[in-house]
Computed example of a mutant assay.
Amino acid sequence: MTMEMMVEKKHFSKELKLLLFFLESKFEDKDLSKEKERFKDIDWEHFLQLTLHHRVYPILYKRIKKLNGEFVPAKVLGTLQKYYQKNIFQMLMLTGESESISRIFSEQRIRTLFLKGSILGAHLYGDLSLRTSSDIDILIPIEDLERAESTLLNLGYVKDDYILTVLNDWKWRHHHITFMHPQKNIKLEIHWRLNPGPSWNQSFEDLWERKKESSIADFPLYVLGEEDLFLFLVSHGARHGWSRLRWLVDIDRLVIRDLDWSCIKKLLKKYQLTQVGGQALLLSSELLNSYSPPELKEISNSKKSKKMAEGALFYIKQLVNLHVEPLPEEIANYHKSHLFLLMSFKQKVLFILSFLFPYPEDALALPLPKALHFLYFPLRPFLWAIRRKRKQAMLQEDVT
C-alpha cells in the first residue's frame, strides 16, 4: 500500500471502516470477540446509508444475521432484512425476464451474452439474492441491433436512449441503448460493445467463443468467460470510479476462481487495460483483503496502478453517485481527470483526436443536408468557438 492510501484510509469514517470489515474476503474466519472496538460509537443510520449506497446490503444482512443479536442493533438488522427480501423479489423478476428475452432473441437468431445483473449474482456468489441489480444488460452483435430493437418494441419496451449522432459517431462514442418496460418496470440495456470510446473492445465473436452457460434457468443463458469477465468488471468499475463497493466485492469473488492469469495478463495488455486491472486488484486487496495473484503482482504494484487506486478512494470515502446528473462541479471535474488518468497513452491520443470528429451539437448549431455532413470536419473549430462564446454569455447573464 502507498503512503497516500494509508493516509486516505485513516480519514475513512468509522462507519465506512466497519462496512469494509464486514465485506472482507475472509470475514467468516474472524474472531469478533477481539474486534469489539470496531462497534463502539457507530452512527448506525450513517452505516445503513453507506450499506445501501454501495449496494452491499444482501451480504451484510447474511453476515450480521449470523451474529445472533451481538454487536449490531436489531433495528439495523431489521432494515437490512427488509431490503434483502425486496432484493430477492427483484432478482427473481429480472431472472425470469432474462430467460424470456433469451428465448425470444434465440428464436430471432440473435446471440446474447448477459452482463452483470442477477445472472452474475448466481454465477459469482452461487446465490442470486446476494447481489443487487436494477436492470438487465445484454451484449449482442452490432449487426443485430436493429432487429433487437424492433423485437423489444413489440414486447412493450420503450426506447429510453435516443442518442443524437452525426456521421455514425454513436457506434464508437456510445456502447449501449436503454429500454424501459412501463408495465413491468424493468430497465434493459442492449450493448454492442463492452466499453464506450476511446477504448479497445474485444470482438463479439471472440467473447461468444469463450462464453459460459449459466445454470440459473431452464433455457440457456450465456455469460462471459471468466477471463473476459475479469476484463469487463475491472473496466466497468474503473469507469465508475469504484463508487459502489459492490463492484469490488465482485472482483473479490472472481479472483478466487480458477482463472488463467497468464491469459488475463495478455488480454489486459492487448486491450489497453493493464493498469486498470492493477488498480482493481490493488483496491480489492487493500480494502477487502482479497486474493492477489502473484502472476499480476508487477502490474498491481506499478506506480500508475497505485496512483489510480489512490484516486478511486475519493469516490469510495464519499457518497458519490455518478448516475444522478447534473453532478456537483467539484465531482464532475474530478471524474473527468480520473477518467483521463485511467487511459493508456494510445487511448489519450485517440481521445484528444476524437475532439476533431464532429459532434451532434455541431449539426444542431448548423443543420446541413446529410450529403454535406463532411463539412462539419473543417467547421468544427468555428462551431465549438461559437458555442463556447454563447455559453459564457449565458453565464454572465445569470450572474448579473
Rank of each mutant, 00 (worst) to 15 (best):
Y61M: 01
Q49A: 11
I101Y: 03
G225F: 04
Q90F: 06
V7I: 14
K26T: 10
T400G: 15
I163L: 15
L356W: 14
F71K: 07
S33C: 05
I264S: 02
Q81S: 13
S25I: 00
S284E: 06
T400F: 12
A385P: 02
K26N: 14
V166N: 03
S215V: 08
L113T: 03
N301K: 08
H338F: 15
K265Y: 10
V349T: 11
P58K: 06
K212H: 07
E330L: 05
L50K: 04
I331Q: 07
D206E: 15
K269S: 13
H176Y: 11
F204N: 02
S102F: 08
I264E: 02
K303S: 11
S300I: 01
R387C: 05
I119D: 04
T178I: 04
S354N: 08
V76L: 08
E325A: 02
G78T: 11
P73F: 03
G241V: 08
L395I: 08
D144E: 13
S337A: 13
Q318M: 02
V223P: 00
Y271N: 04
K36P: 00
M3N: 12
L128C: 09
T178Y: 00
H11V: 01
D144F: 02
E99T: 05
E361S: 14
S243N: 07
L167H: 03
T51A: 15
K304G: 01
A122D: 14
I186A: 04
H176P: 00
P198K: 07
F355A: 09
R253G: 03
S344N: 09
